[in-house]
C-alpha cells in the first residue's frame, strides 16, 4: 500500500537533489560578500522550510486523527514529526556552521529566526518522551495528536512574532517584496527546495512502508503460530499500524 510508487519517487528525489547540487556548484555564482561558504544556504534554508512544513503537516494529520479516530493518521503524524526533527537537527548544525563562517559566531542570540527555530526544536523534542511515558497505546495516540496540533499551531505563531520583531542580521530570503536574489541563485534555490521536499516525502513513504510491512509480518506470524497473542514488543514511543488480517496469496 505504502510501497506503491516508491521507486519512481526515490529516483525523482535523487535526480532532483543531484541536479540541485550540480546547480549549486557549477551554475550559481559565488556570493559577493561571503564567497563560497554562502552555498550552504542551498542546504540550510530548504531544510528549514521543509522541516517546518513537516511540523505543520503533522499537526494537520493529527487533526485528521482526532476527527476520524483512525490510528493510521497518528502513525503518519508520528513519522512526519520524527523526520522533521531529524531535519531540524540538520538545520541547527548547518545554521551554526554558516553563522560561524559569515557572522563569526556559532550562535547569535539577538537573532529571532535562530532563537525561534531553537524553541520549536526544543518543543518537538518533548514529543517522543511524551509518547514514551504513556502506556495505553490508544491514549498515547490521542495525547500525541493533541500535542502535535498545539505545537503545529505554535510554529506559525512563533514565526509571526519573529517577523514582527525587526531582525537585522538574518537575511530575509523570501520576503513579500520578492527577495533580493538574482535569477540564477533563485532557480538553484527553488530546485534545492524541491529536492529537499521530495526527499522528505520519499523518506516518509519509506518509513510508512516499513511500518506497514512489519505490521503485516507480525500478523502473518501470528497466523502461522495459531491464534496465540502477539509477543509483547516492549513499550515504545513509536506507534505501529494495527494490521488487519491479510489473506495469504
Amino acid at each position: 500500500m505504502y510501497g506503491k510508487g516508491l521507486r519512481p519517487l526515490s529516483l525523482a528525489s535523487a535526480a532532483t537533489l543531484t541536479a540541485a547540487f550540480a546547480l549549486v556548484f557549477f551554475y550559481a555564482p559565488n556570493d559577493a560578500d561571503q564567497g563560497f561558504v554562502q552555498k550552504i544556504f542551498y542546504v540550510h534554508v530548504p531544510m528549514a522550510i521543509v522541516a517546518l512544513g513537516g511540523f505543520v503537516a503533522a499537526g494537520l494529520m493529527a487533526i485528521a486523527h482526532l476527527r476520524s479516530g483512525d490510528r493510521r493518521w497518528d502513525v503518519r503524524s508520528y513519522v512526519a514529526i520524527h523526520l522533521s526533527l531529524i531535519l531540524a537537527i540538520g538545520v541547527l548544525v548547518t545554521g551554526a556552521i554558516w553563522a560561524k563562517a559569515s557572522w563569526g559566531h556559532w550562535w547569535v542570540w539577538d537573532e529571532p529566526t535562530l532563537v525561534s527555530f531553537l524553541i520549536i526544536f526544543l518543543l518537538y523534542a518533548t514529543y517522543q518522551p511524551l509518547r514514551f511515558s504513556i502506556e495505553n497505546p490508544e491514549r498515547q495516540a490521542r495525547y500525541a495528536s493533541v500535542f502535535a496540533i498545539t505545537a503545529g499551531a505554535f510554529v506559525p505563531l512563533n514565526f509571526i512574532a519573529v517577523r514582527l520583531a525587526q531582525a537585522y542580521t538574518h537575511p530575509r530570503v523570501l520576503s513579500t517584496t520578492g527577495g533580493n536574489l538574482p535569477g540564477s541563485m533563485r532557480l538553484t534555490f527553488l530546485v534545492a527546495l524541491a529536492g529537499m521536499a521530495l526527499l522528505y516525502v520519499t523518506l516518509w513513504k519509506y518509513e510508512m512502508a516499513s511500518k506497514h510491512a512489519s505490521a503485516q509480518l507480525r500478523a502473518l506470524r501470528r497466523k502461522l503460530a495459531g491464534e496465540e497473542p502477539p509477543l509483547p514488543a516492549g513499550r515504545s514511543a513509536a506507534p505501529s499500524l494495527a494490521a488487519p488480517a491479510q489473506p495469504v496469496p
Partner: peptide, 22 residues
C-alpha cells in the same frame, strides 16, 4: 496533557516552557 503520563513532573514543564517563551 502531562497528568496521565508517568513522568508528569518532567513532561509538564518541558512542554509548557517552550510554548510560553513568546
Amino acid at each position: 496533557l502531562a497528568i496521565q503520563t508517568r513522568a508528569r513532573d518532567l513532561i509538564g514543564p518541558l512542554t509548557a516552557l517552550p510554548l510560553l517563551i513568546p
